[in-house]
């Protein structure tokens, strides 16, 4: 909110008053419209993620799917696709303090852990400059890499 108490110019104050009045009218109208519309929307076919279950009824339960464990990893659909994660990651934590993905996939440890090394592209800046450390752009692994479950696709994919 702007403070205008120490502003003595009448026209400015007047303009402000006008603006406030306009807002009050607009809000009232919008409120009225919503009051009429809300019951319509509820009875209509607008579905939330919860489905069109009534509020007082329990949501439909889905079977929890286990993450797929695939030895050798998933095939990529194209060369530069971030490969999908072929193992359980429920225990992995990524925070300011720790990144448990790196402990297995880093340059130093990947051989010992029998894990594929993090791709070269992860050690580059946007301009293609090579870094000695993992690029900060690649710190949050799950931004690009996702674990997989054997579940029907939620949305059709024609890729």
């Amino acid at each position: 909110m702007q403070r205008y108490s120490n502003n003595n110019d009448y026209s400015v104050q007047h303009g402000l008053m006008e603006a406030v009045m306009k807002k009050v009218i607009l809000t009232t109208v919008a409120g009225a419209v919503m009051m009429i519309q809300a019951p319509l929307a509820m009875s209509g076919d607008l579905a939330s993620l919860r489905g069109d279950n009534k509020l007082e009824v329990e949501a439909q339960m889905f079977e929890a799917k286990k993450p797929l464990q695939v030895e050798g990893g998933f095939k990529r659909s194209w060369d530069l696709q971030p490969p999908q994660i072929p193992h359980d990651i429920s225990k992995d934590r990524v925070s300011l303090q720790e990144n448990t993905c790196i402990r297995c996939h880093s340059k130093e440890n990947h051989e010992k852990e029998k894990a594929p090394e993090i791709g070269k592209s992860h050690y580059m800046t946007r301009d293609g400059k090579e870094l000695t450390k993992l690029s900060t752009r690649r710190y949050f692994c799950r931004q690009c890499h996702a674990p997989q479950a054997d579940a029907p696709a939620l949305v059709e994919n024609t890729f």
Binding site: R93, S95, L96, Q97, E98, T100, R103
Partner: peptide
């Protein structure tokens, strides 16, 4: 390491 708690920074 880190089986039960979060790991401290620079642990490795």
């Amino acid at each position: 390491k880190g089986i039960a708690h979060h790991l401290p920074k620079g642990w490795e």
